[in-house]
């Protein structure tokens, strides 16, 4: 299993645990836990992007058909770029969205825009690095 796959998988497991902790907190708001504005979309995206999509990316990088004998996983550098961009973007959103929801300061606006761009770039590079590996053999 390649190193980048191990990082994707272990990170995705951490996101799952954190997402479920957020779900617990959201459920607890009905019995007096502090209301955190913007926590609900962060929960959904930590679960579906951080856990589900990141697990698919990591396993796909490892498991999809080889690109070539010399470059079985096409570009390792792109694989790390996807990992870095996705996690930077998602963590920035996790921080900025609750803060923006309670205080729409320019800092948090900018952080949300940057987080969107980082995650989109990760998605684009993942498709670029994967597309030609999806082939008949």
């Amino acid at each position: 299993m390649p190193a980048v796959t191990r990082w994707f998988i272990k990170s995705s497991l951490v996101y799952l645990a954190v997402a479920l902790a957020f779900a617990l907190w959201l459920a607890g708001q009905s019995i007096g836990f502090a209301v955190v504005p913007g926590l609900s979309p962060v929960f959904f995206h930590f679960f579906l992007v951080g856990w589900v999509t990141q697990m698919i990316m990591g396993v796909g990088y490892w498991f999809f058909p080889k690109y070539s004998p010399e470059q079985p996983r096409r570009s390792e550098r792109l694989g790390w770029a996807v990992f870095g961009l996705l996690n930077a973007g998602l963590l920035l959103r996790g921080l900025a969205e609750p803060l923006f929801s309670s205080n729409a300061a320019a800092t948090w606006r900018t952080a949300l825009v940057v987080s969107a761009v980082l995650q989109w770039l990760a998605g684009l590079l993942f498709v670029v690095n994967t597309w030609e590996r999806i082939k008949e053999r």
């Binding site: 959103r93 900018t110 989109w120």
Partner: peptide, 27 residues
């Protein structure tokens, strides 16, 4: 091959819309 490539296209389209929605929320 067809299923995975279609899935990748929807992934990119879904991520693009998501990025637009998030940007639109902030700006």
């Amino acid at each position: 091959v067809w299923g995975t490539r279609l899935a990748l296209l929807y992934f990119l389209a879904g991520f693009t819309i998501g990025a637009l929605i998030l940007i639109n929320k902030a700006a």
